[in-house]
């Protein structure tokens, strides 16, 4: 992962930190906002966060590793979340995961070689009536089965290559 480092726009990072008034209680939200730009929290930002918020680096790391929404490793352009909440589980979420794993050639928790897709499991996204459900970045798709989920993903493949 060393050579996948992104170019960090430090002005943007500064703006995010300032928008929370350098409030150390807002650390998690600041990290989430940074993640929203890069799809992960670039580790280079950790010492900067620690310094600007006046906290120890160890706290920044422990918050980053405690919360699932923060990843210190680069993730794909499209993050696919398969809901494995109870409602989706009893309606066959496992089949959705299996179908995606074999189509993308990765396991849950991994990112494709071309950095296009990351496949993650989440526990309920509050769309339980329409299960099984996945989200791809901000979009939600429901009422899926083994084959319709691949059609959804193919749409993203197509829009990425066009």
């Amino acid at each position: 992962m060393e050579n996948t480092a992104v170019n960090i726009d430090w002005d943007k990072i500064d703006n995010i930190i300032e928008s929370y008034n350098r409030d150390r209680e807002s650390l998690l939200m600041i990290m989430q906002d940074i993640s929203d730009i890069y799809n992960y929290l670039p580790p280079e930002t950790v010492p900067v966060l620690a310094r600007k918020l006046g906290v120890r680096e160890s706290l920044v790391y422990s918050v980053a590793s405690f919360y699932k929404t923060i990843s210190l490793e680069p993730r794909g352009k499209y993050i696919i979340h398969v809901c494995t909440g109870t409602a989706c589980h009893v309606r066959g979420a496992e089949k959705i995961t299996q179908s995606l794993e074999s189509d993308l050639g990765i396991n849950e928790g991994q990112t494709t070689e071309d950095k296009m897709f990351t496949l993650e499991a989440v526990r309920c996204i509050g769309c339980c009536a329409s299960g099984p459900v996945i989200t791809v970045n901000q979009d939600t798709h429901g009422g899926l089965d083994r084959s319709s989920v691949l059609e959804v993903v193919n749409e993203y493949k197509r829009s990425a290559s066009s």
Partner: peptide, 20 residues
Amino acid sequence: GGAFVCGESTALMASLEGKP
């Protein structure tokens, strides 16, 4: 941040304070 345990009262307050 996507942690189930943060729904628990004392965990939620720790999280609000910017901690795990």
